[in-house]
Design a protein around this nucleic acid. Sequence first.
DNA 1: ACAATGCTGTTAAATTTTTAACAGTTCTAA
DNA 2: TTAGAACTGTTAAAAATTTAACAGCATTGT
Lengths: 211, 211
Amino acid sequence: MFMNKLPDKTVERLSQYRRSLNNQLAKGKTHIFSHEIANLLHITPVQVRRDIMLIGYSGTLRKGYDIKEMVELIGKIIDTDSGLKMAVIGMGNLGKAFIHYLFEKRTKLKIVAAFDVNPDKVDKKYADVQCYHLDQLEEIINNEGITIGIITTPPEVASPMADRLKKAGVKGILNFTPRALSPREGVYLEEYDMITSLEKVAYFVKQKDTN
Amino acid sequence: MFMNKLPDKTVERLSQYRRSLNNQLAKGKTHIFSHEIANLLHITPVQVRRDIMLIGYSGTLRKGYDIKEMVELIGKIIDTDSGLKMAVIGMGNLGKAFIHYLFEKRTKLKIVAAFDVNPDKVDKKYADVQCYHLDQLEEIINNEGITIGIITTPPEVASPMADRLKKAGVKGILNFTPRALSPREGVYLEEYDMITSLEKVAYFVKQKDTN
DNA sequence: ACAATGCTGTTAAATTTTTAACAGTTCTAA
DNA sequence: TTAGAACTGTTAAAAATTTAACAGCATTGT
């Protein structure tokens, strides 16, 4: 793709645009205006138009944007042609939640394996995803060509897991553990901690109270 | 608190600082340098110092920051004195994961109720949190003085839940559903969609490939 | 046919957030 | 007791992101 690097924030929003657009498609809509998209995500129409400009798409004046075309274009930018394979490490509640979340939704980003050490979970299937014993991590990542690892283990083992993932050849890690990982050369690392979101809400709720 | 509004991003980081600092405390450390904190969260030392400045704290030169003092100060800013009560709506995997995540961790932010419609779940306890039938939502929110609602239901019902929460008097909503909610007057709304994080990773992994 | 309307695409301005620069203070060590 | 190193606190500059402003063009209505 000829695309020069998009701003981080735009990339984040593209993913949200697509999901909302798909929802609209499902409702039978074929075209959509920037202000409609904006309402769906509660951001401003300008921001929507600007993002769309940056990815090089154009709407039809007076008709808005062709939803299907736009979804496809976003796909070209966000997905790889071949699709990326992913593995979830740790099949606790969060790991399961994640797998169900994605189930039936994404065509391109595909979870192809889950790992755990609990014998009750190993060899079971969760929403079509096979759970393997952690010992097989390297083997399966190699065989399947998995490039993204999602860590949903207890925090204590997050760091060793990241090491193993890196060694096994993974190129991106998404860490859901509350313990921040140090970045590893050549591996894109994204972290998310639910508590951060929560405390943010709490702060603003408190703020509102005292003002 | 005399505090003027802190930047959004700083508030987010405060919560992360605290968690890391608590980890260090647990290891027996009493003081810490800005660059150490920075390493833990992989951000820059300058940013750490700046945030600390903004909350009006000072470290001792050459010794760094007193971890305990700092944790307490962050608490004063982030927590309310009385503590905030929260409820989780929807006890699927994600709801459960969330409750366990918080279990034993936070003193101030406390989940005091969970809601679901599934009779197998109603009246059970999850990590010390009582699960009620959804019908009792308004009643319990009022009785308990719950001010924050965390939505982990299927996406279709997220919006009606937000309405009910608002009507019941909740002041902040954290939505984990992939369907974005429209903002409601007087209620702080924070959204998080796991897929966004995932697609961001995917994008940058792909990017790295082609460069 | 022509003015008004409604929306897009884009450039420019404003705001927010991050990074840099550096002066100042405590400690160390010759 | 003085030079140097190690950090902090803060102001200033840079970069990233959001918002505003507006020109331009289909479509609608008169």
